[in-house]
């Protein structure tokens, strides 16, 4: 589903002394099937932005379009439930979306709510647990008696089980161990491609943004600061540092290497192995591989 923001602003506690503008005249367009990363400093408005995508909040001004659904200050989308069956959101803190007494019930809640049949739900629960790296032993456990990373996995499984067209992920790998982070991102990416999803990833990992996203939007104080291809955006060190961000570690290393060794190795989203080969070529006196 195409997603469009047209001059969207969002103010928390409007008409009160505490009014706070979290989104400020934001416009962008995400064509269906894109993998987008949204990056920005603490409090820049990322979580507020994504809450518009399933109608959890309505813009204070401007218009949000998700496929055929429209949200404006005046207009709640008519079929909110239908919108939510198409847009799955993994929230920043997993506890906020866990509430049932067992893991199985928790993962079943979404599909059940959207009218999926029992046997299909069973199948989806099994499949979702596997996708997030939890064994079948977890079904009868209480989601509140789990470790932080295990809760995160259950919360993600619950969203996967609704089989959304648009997958919205708010820092989905926070709290996962290194292998879990990698496997989870690979799993999202695989689904994104095989099920032709539109995926929106909020992340503080420039590495993940570069590796998986087609397009990146950088927020600063509720406004769009930059957007473009990750490999073009994430090499702009000065511009990023102005909004408290940084280049990915690989880019930082290549920059320092180039300065010290007077070479011009470019950043091409290469692997560590490929970078090592290029460095070795320089050290061994051969010509650099560019």
């Amino acid at each position: 589903m195409d997603i469009t923001f047209e001059n969207v602003s969002y103010i928390y506690q409007q008409h009160s002394p505490f009014a706070h503008k979290a989104i400020d005249q934001l416009s962008f367009h995400i064509p269906s099937g894109t993998f987008v990363a949204i990056v920005g400093h603490t409090g820049s408005g990322k979580s507020t932005l994504i809450q518009h995508l399933n109608g959890l909040v309505q813009p204070t001004a401007g218009k949000v379009k998700i496929g055929d659904f429209e949200l404006t200050a005046e207009k709640k989308p008519k079929h909110l439930k239908q919108l939510r069956s198409k847009v799955g959101v993994v929230f920043q803190y997993p506890e906020h979306q866990l509430f049932e007494e067992t893991v199985a019930k928790d993962i079943s809640f979404g599909p059940k709510n959207f009218g999926v049949g029992d046997s299909e739900i069973q199948r989806r629960v099994t499949e979702a647990l596997q996708a997030v790296g939890l064994s079948a032993d977890y079904v009868e456990r209480s989601p509140f008696d789990l470790s932080g990373g295990q809760m995160r996995r259950v919360a993600i499984a619950g969203v996967l089980a609704t089989k959304p067209n648009v997958l919205v992920l708010d820092e989905p790998t926070a709290g996962l161990d290194p292998r879990g982070q990698k496997e989870m991102m690979e799993m999202f990416y695989e689904r994104h491609r095989s099920e032709q999803l539109t995926t929106i990833l909020v992340t503080h990992s420039m590495e993940d943004a570069v590796t998986y996203a087609d397009h990146v939007i950088i927020l600063n104080k509720g406004s769009k600061y930059m957007e473009g291809k990750p490999e073009e955006v994430f090499v702009q060190k000065e511009a990023l540092q102005q909004v408290q961000l940084d280049v990915p570690e690989m880019v930082a290393f290549i920059n320092r290497w180039n300065e010290k060794f007077h070479t011009k190795l470019p950043f091409t989203k290469q692997s560590e192995r490929e970078l090592a080969t290029a460095i070795t070529a320089v050290l061994k006196g051969g010509k650099s591989h560019e």
Partner: peptide, 12 residues
Amino acid sequence: DEATAMLDPRGR
């Protein structure tokens, strides 16, 4: 206990 997991890299 994972007290900076939600911070941007600079903030962390």
